[in-house]
Design a protein around this nucleic acid. Structure first.
Length: 261
DNA sequence: GACATTTGACCCGG
DNA sequence: CCGGGTCAAATGTC
């Protein structure tokens, strides 16, 4: 998978996570969480818009360099960082100048976006009069995930918050997604998709006869068919909602440019 | 006690 | 030197 497709995949997964949370909230509408629902709905919309933009751009520009399999994701940031002495702290590279970011603006800060974040800093930004909060993926240490986000109020009246995401989630949440089908011809190879916490086993259901695993947190997740020799259709490697959303836009990330014309 | 958040210090790029 | 990003000790919460 090239880096653009991976980026789109992550964005779609992000949207899927938001959709799941939204569904859970709506299923258990005990409390008045309309703000949360609004955040999630906006996140879902943003994710699909961003993913589609990425995928369409991929199709427009990426067909010529298919031989180049080395994506930026393959380059090891760990090695890059390891060149620096351990006692060095502070800004390594300017994330604000990185082209690899996605910025969302909403009347409320986006706390529930489908990922688990850990706050690692807060700073008063000189020009804005508002504090900026810095978050890392909760799996930064465990799985070397480098995804980060910044949340900052950018306007008082009416309140407006900017949430900026940097980098990609490389935590297992996405690895499970990115690595299958591992061996479609191997019947012993279980087809597993998971979108909840990788360590949580309580939601896990295993169909032992078919050696397939689904997760109850994603009730609408498709059980992958045993015959998985073809993965060209999004509906065969995405959740049903994401697949339907992508197909509704008439887009197939594996379609070639000649198919488009 | 374990884990998450806060906050001041440190570091780097401009 | 300044502003922004990160670290890590201190503090809070469960």
């Amino acid at each position: 998978m090239n880096s653009c497709q991976q980026k789109a995949m992550e964005t779609l997964l992000h949207g899927h996570g938001c959709a799941n949370q939204l569904k859970l909230i709506m299923d258990h509408a005990k409390s008045d969480s309309s703000m949360e629902r609004e955040d999630l709905a906006k996140s879902v919309l943003h994710c699909f818009s961003d993913a589609l933009a990425i995928l369409i751009d991929t199709n427009d520009h990426h067909q010529g360099d298919q031989s180049n399999n080395s994506s930026p994701q393959d380059a090891s940031p760990v090695l890059e960082n390891s060149r620096k002495p351990l006692h060095k702290r502070g800004r390594k590279t300017s994330v604000a100048e990185s082209s690899d970011y996605r910025r969302h603006e909403s009347p409320n800060p986006i706390y529930h976006d489908g990922f688990l974040w850990r706050k690692y800093g807060q700073k008063q930004i000189k020009e804005s009069n508002h504090q900026r909060s810095y978050y890392k993926c909760a799996y930064t240490k465990d799985q070397n995930c480098e995804a980060k986000k910044q949340v900052q109020m950018i306007q008082n009246n009416p309140p407006l918050y900017s949430t900026t995401y940097f980098g990609h989630h490389t935590c297992q949440l996405h690895q499970a997604y990115a690595t299958f089908p591992r061996d479609p011809s191997d019947p012993q190879d279980s087809h597993m998709i998971r979108f909840d916490h990788p360590d949580s086993s309580i939601h896990q259901h295993q169909n032992q006869s078919q050696n397939q695993i689904i997760y109850l947190k994603d009730e609408n997740m498709m059980m992958l068919p045993d015959k998985s020799e073809e993965w060209s259709s999004p509906s065969q490697w995405m959740s049903s909602e994401v697949a339907h959303a992508v197909e509704a836009f008439g887009f197939n990330p594996f379609r070639t440019s000649s198919d488009l014309s």
